[in-house]
Amino acid sequence: MTRFTPGARIRVKADFPETRGPCHIRTPHYLRGREGLVERHLGAFRNPEDLAFARPAATIPLYHVRFDQPALWNEGQAGDTVLVELYEHWLEPAA
């Protein structure tokens, strides 16, 4: 079961676990709190946040999510985009 379908507008959680202690996360900081578009479901993979510490790791959905690139930096060329693999627990529906 996946929570998001292609075309869904999502927001990446504005969470910074690295400020709370040792962790391993694959969501780049520059996307936290940003809105993007789910391009497709890439499959299900074991959660790297647990694998990195050799903890039991649940298998979770992974998506390709597209972001408007100039909006991320307030610079760049209109139309350019950034496409990133993100795990489901980092995504929430965009308001």
Partner: peptide, 16 residues
């Protein structure tokens, strides 16, 4: 992101 609150400094490896 709103501009009001400064964001935390990214981790060393997170250099995008």
């Amino acid at each position: 992101m709103p501009d009001e609150a400064p964001l935390p400094v990214p981790a060393t490896h997170d250099i995008g």
